[in-house]
């Protein structure tokens, strides 16, 4: 989902940066307040960021013979609420841009929007929705992480389609073209991200019930079922 440096026209690059900036600003404020008010969850916050760090570094192969990477932002969104992930995702993307030449400074705003904003919000909404429908918790978490991952890649496809409409079929045609580049690889990869997110949540419910109880954003079901 990394749009490469210079691959968005200046106007688009500026617009996405402007859209993402307020989310990141709110995120900085939220993270600061969270660390001040509940210093005991700092370590869990770091672990959630680390999860995104490691999982987005791994280029995983897919049955289509191409490879791509998961995003890892669903876990933090589920635990801390979606707005916290904007900052953590930005840190991950900035690292990859500056040190790995993966992504770009001009496209950072657009990449932050897809991976650190849309993905986490979709994951959080799906978790809430699935829990509202009384789906089993593990399944809800799996679904949330998986759909958050897909949403990130669909957003990237949309951003590229807006910038590069197809000469004949327009933005819609271009969107389908970009989505079909990502989809076959990302559909199975997101399943792996979903599985790993469930593994971590299972662990947290077993060993970190005190921290989970401290989190305001967390759906009650996650905690009340937790064994002590």
């Amino acid at each position: 989902m990394h749009i490469t440096e210079g691959f968005l026209p200046p106007l688009h690059a500026a617009a996405w940066t402007a859209v993402s900036l307020p989310f990141v600003a709110v995120s900085v404020y939220r993270v600061n307040r969270l660390m001040r008010e509940k210093p005991e969850i700092k370590l869990l916050l770091a672990a959630s960021g680390a999860f995104a760090f490691v999982i987005s570094a791994l280029k995983l192969p897919s049955i289509t013979g191409s490879c791509s990477h998961a995003t890892g932002t669903g876990l933090g969104a589920i635990l801390f609420g979606p707005s916290v992930m904007a900052l953590l995702g930005t840190i991950v993307l900035a690292f990859q841009t500056l040190l790995l030449a993966h992504g770009g400074i001009t496209t950072l705003g657009a990449n932050v929007f897809s991976m650190a904003i849309v993905g986490p919000w979709v994951a959080y909404a799906v978790l809430r929705g699935a829990q509202g429908l009384r789906a089993p918790l593990a399944f809800s978490v799996f679904l949330a992480a998986m759909l958050g991952d897909w949403a990130t890649y669909l957003t990237t496809a949309g951003q590229l389609a807006l910038a590069f409409p197809d000469p004949t079929s327009g933005i819609a045609g271009s969107f389908l073209k970009f989505a079909s580049v990502f989809a076959p690889t990302q559909l199975p990869l997101a399943v792996i991200e979903g599985l790993l997110t469930v593994v971590i949540v299972n662990f947290l419910r077993e060993y970190s019930s005190e921290e989970l109880r401290n989190l305001r954003f967390l759906p009650k079901t996650l905690v009340s079922e937790a064994r002590l």
Partner: peptide, 10 residues
Amino acid sequence: EFAGTDGQAM
């Protein structure tokens, strides 16, 4: 070749 999809999109 397990090429990255980011590159394919570009």
